[in-house]
Design a protein around this nucleic acid. Structure first.
Lengths: 209, 209
DNA sequence: CATTAAATACCTTATTTGGGGGGATGGAAA
DNA sequence: TTTCCATCCCCCCAAATAAGGTATTTAATG
């Protein structure tokens, strides 16, 4: 906490919350609020001048949503790290935020100390997340244990999902084309589908692949 | 830190490190080491009896690797949360560990206090990660900004990557099959490939989709 | 030891898809 | 104004796909 000097901008429409953060951050050595805005449109005009290292961004904003604002803000201030600070914990929002370039995702029940630590962490190249968010993110990597597919079938469906032809899959797995076809037949029948696309979708939705 | 009572098992082949963790954890109220093993094979026989809430697992083990041990351990002790504790920070290892069912991933330079906090966090359904790991995980969600593809082309390539046929893509996007084919031709030429599979692979590798 | 499940392989047939070639148009953006 | 984007149209043909059925070998489990 000695000689760090972090410039922070807020984008948050709720005045009470915004003032809370301003107070929290302004009263801590090494952290400085250089800009405070109520919407993306508001921020867009002036934020580049504020030279923020970290931007704390609400999801629910008047006008453009926080999620959609991320790439625009990153264009205006490419080196800034965006941390989403919100009450929402829906998977889709979280993944869209991260895909759009957020460096972190915190829920609003995050204690003040953790918020400050997260700002520092983001600036140092980390990816601060609330613990339940982190778990959701981790779970998105995980497979279901109750797949009806055998390991080999799973492997082949994965290959299909990469767009490879059956012939190519056969070559790469050192098996006959006919074997690949057999596996696919079994996959379709187990998943009760009649096409590649449906098999891939069903398998992904259920985390079989 | 009052009345929690966490049973912890270690799987770590380096004696010095293992003893370090034993000491750290054993000397903290609410944390108890109920088993300590040097390999998966060693753990397999006895770990169920130890009733662990959290398993701290090294990646590099003699015999079966820590990564491959995760699903086997989860089968033996389904309710345990596995935290990987390792020096390795390679993306592939991390993603494989998470896909295999790890609840967290820490590097060995993690300070003792953070290790204890992470154990508690994992038990409460969180996903503890070292900050650089978290960033890698977050980055895996992100797109490149310098894609040569137009938004429409990107959209179509995404559809192709789901396994849908051109005809179906045309129907779902309310455009003509010929339009889809044109886009695909342009995609292939921009990416300098000559097949679906190559386009998907190149686009995924470069995070265009 | 008997049974089952998994992975392997073979056959046929009809249809769809994929990749490559050409060119055209209207509108938006630079 | 010229380029880029999204849209649409024509041609060709080899390759891939889906669906039907059957069969062998090995490994695991009871």
């Amino acid at each position: 906490m000695q000689d760090l000097n972090i410039n922070i901008c807020l984008v948050e429409d709720d005045e009470t919350i915004r003032e809370g953060y301003e107070y929290l951050i302004g009263n801590n050595e090494g952290y400085k609020i250089t800009g405070s805005f109520t919407s993306y449109e508001d921020a867009a005009k002036k934020i580049a001048k504020c030279d923020p290292d970290v931007i704390l961004l609400d999801v629910e904003l008047p006008g453009i949503s926080g999620i959609d604002a991320i790439p625009k803000l990153k264009k205006l201030v490419p080196d800034a790290h965006v941390i989403i600070l919100t009450v929402y914990e829906q998977e889709l929002l979280i993944f869209r935020a991260l895909a759009n370039g957020a460096s972190g995702y915190l829920t609003k029940d995050t204690p003040p100390k953790k918020i400050l630590a997260s700002i520092k962490e983001a600036m140092e190249g980390g990816g601060p997340m609330s613990s339940n968010i982190a778990r959701m993110v981790i779970q998105s990597f995980q497979r279901s244990e109750e797949s009806p597919l055998t390991p080999r079938e799973t492997e082949i469906l994965e290959q299909i999902a990469t767009g490879k032809s059956r012939k190519r899959i056969a070559e790469e797995l050192f098996i006959d084309l006919e074997t690949v076809k057999s596996h696919i037949k079994n996959i379709y029948s187990k998943l009760n589908v009649h096409s590649k696309a449906d098999a891939i979708k069903l398998a992904k939705d259920n985390k079989f692949i």
